[in-house]
C-alpha cells in the first residue's frame, strides 16, 4: 500500500497541535474481514495519528525535520473503522526538543473516538534523509491548501 495516511491538514499550531483528516475508501487495499465485515487494521489508525504528528513536525520545522516512531506508552482501540469512514485526527505535542518529540491524540469518526494514543515518542530526523525536501514541501502545500470545491483546474 501507499503509506500516506493523511489527506488534509485542517489546522495546525506550530509545535503544539494539529487537526487532520484521512478519508477511507472501498478502493483502498488494506481492508480486512475477519467475520464481521471489512475493517481497517487497528495499527493503521495509530499510523494515521503518527503521520499527522509527523506533518506537524515537518510544518513546524519548515521541512527541516520529520519523525520516526520510537515508542508508544499506550494505545487503545474502541470501535472499528469501516470503508467510507472519515478519520478525524487530533494530535497535541506534550514535549518537543531537538532530537525527540512526544505527542498524544485521538482518531474519531463522526465525533466518536475510535482510537486514543498516549505519549507517542518520535525521533526527529533530518527530513532530507527520508525524502526529497522538494517533494515533501509540495505535499505539505497540497495538504494545507484551502479547498476549492472540487478543486479548480
Amino acid at each position: 500500500m501507499r503509506f500516506h495516511l493523511i489527506d488534509r491538514i485542517d489546522a495546525w499550531d506550530a509545535g503544539r497541535t494539529i487537526s487532520a483528516r484521512k478519508l477511507t475508501s472501498w478502493l483502498e487495499d488494506f481492508w480486512r474481514d475477519e467475520g464481521d465485515g471489512p475493517q481497517m487494521p487497528e495499527p493503521l489508525i495509530l499510523e494515521a495519528l503518527c503521520q499527522a504528528g509527523t506533518w506537524l513536525i515537518i510544518a513546524t520545522t519548515e521541512v527541516r525535520q520529520r519523525a520516526a516512531l520510537l515508542s508508544v506508552d499506550g494505545v487503545s482501540f474502541h470501535e472499528p473503522v469501516r470503508p467510507g469512514d472519515v478519520l478525524v485526527l487530533e494530535g497535541a505535542v506534550e514535549s518537543m526538543g531537538e532530537e525527540t518529540a512526544v505527542l498524544s491524540g485521538t482518531a474519531s469518526v463522526n465525533g466518536r473516538i475510535v482510537m486514543k494514543a498516549e505519549a507517542v515518542m518520535c525521533a526527529l530526523l533530518p527530513a532530507e534523509e527520508l525524502d526529497g525536501p522538494e517533494d515533501t514541501r509540495r505535499m505539505l502545500e497540497r495538504l494545507t491548501r484551502v479547498s476549492v470545491g472540487g478543486g479548480r483546474r
Binding site: 501507499r2 503509506f3 487497528e42 495499527p43 499510523e47 532530507e128 527520508l130 525524502d131 526529497g132 517533494d135
Partner: peptide
C-alpha cells in the same frame, strides 16, 4: 514490498505499526 516506495523514498524501513500488526 510496495510500502517502501513511500516509507521512505530515501530510506526503506518497515513501518513500526506494521510490526505491531504482526504482533497482534
Amino acid at each position: 514490498l510496495t510500502v517502501f516506495a513511500t516509507h521512505f523514498p530515501r530510506f526503506p524501513v518497515m513501518p513500526g505499526v506494521l510490526i505491531l500488526d504482526d504482533i497482534v
